[in-house]
Amino acid sequence: MAELMYWQGILRAHDEEMARDPLVFAMGEDIGVAGGTYKATSGLFAKYGEQRVIDTPISENSYTGIGVGAAMVGARPIVEIMSVNFAWLAMDQLMNNAAKIHYMSGGRIRCPFVMRVPGGTAHQLGAQHSARMEKVFMGISGLRVVTPATPRDAYGLLKSAVRSDDPVVIIEHESMYNLKGEVPDEEFFTPLEGVEIMRPGKDVSIFAYNISVHWALDAAKKLASEYGIDAEVIDLRALKPLDRAGIAASVCKTHHAIIVEEDEAPVGVGSEVMAIINEECFFDLDAAPVRVHALDIPIPYNHRLEKAAIPNAGDVIAAVRKMFGR
């Protein structure tokens, strides 16, 4: 088992899939000659050439559409959008075409399209480079939306996404490309559906995804050592479709639920998970579920203001302590 960085997991998945299938190709801004803003496609241009590792002009909507069109006739595009904020420009092709083509053709046309986007806040990137758009993608019927929290899943989810015949959006994170973690040496696939229990526990279920999984794990450690609270940390991982049964199973066991997200609260992952908890486990709850989330503001530039806008492990600990009165 090798220790890889998040970007290396993504790169390995690209490389294996491109070596296996000549119809797999990658496109995006600066992914080829420049090697990719986060190095996730570095070396592929030299290995596979400009026909399959395509540096695009800055035309997000249309190069996304070119990927969608290629997918509709049997190719397997991996389209990188340099920052999730730019994906707003590609929403027409993603939402109107990629997501709907299989349904509106009565299942006659498949769209095995993959979009990779780094989302989230990093360090003082300002309001137009700090979006968290999972709430938008997960509101679109026909898409699959997944988000890796570890190098292992950065690799395994891209592998599965390329093989899936559905359009898949993979939300990565600006701040996690250099995160290290164990990745098995043999080929494997992370499922595109289902939650994963990252830390089993009996007292409270903490639901998280992407970077907030790490906040939740940090919080769980402290909650155990300092407050005697045994938290279960669940990586939601697949945001669309959400794993209702997996969410319910954990809450029915712990009777307490916290949802932690880097995104703003209104209309988001937290609201949706809370709705599922209400629908599936209302009578199993010993306390009202709580959301830990970002402020509903455009992300500010100033480092103190930025920090104040985004939750952290401390906020998770505070929310759990309040719930348990400890």
Binding site: P22, S62, V68, M72, A75, P77, N97
Partner: peptide, 15 residues
């Protein structure tokens, strides 16, 4: 909307 799709079909043909 179909402009890029048409180019995408052509990209697949090219590949």
């Amino acid at each position: 909307g179909p402009f890029p799709l048409a180019a995408g079909f052509a990209k697949a043909i090219q590949l």
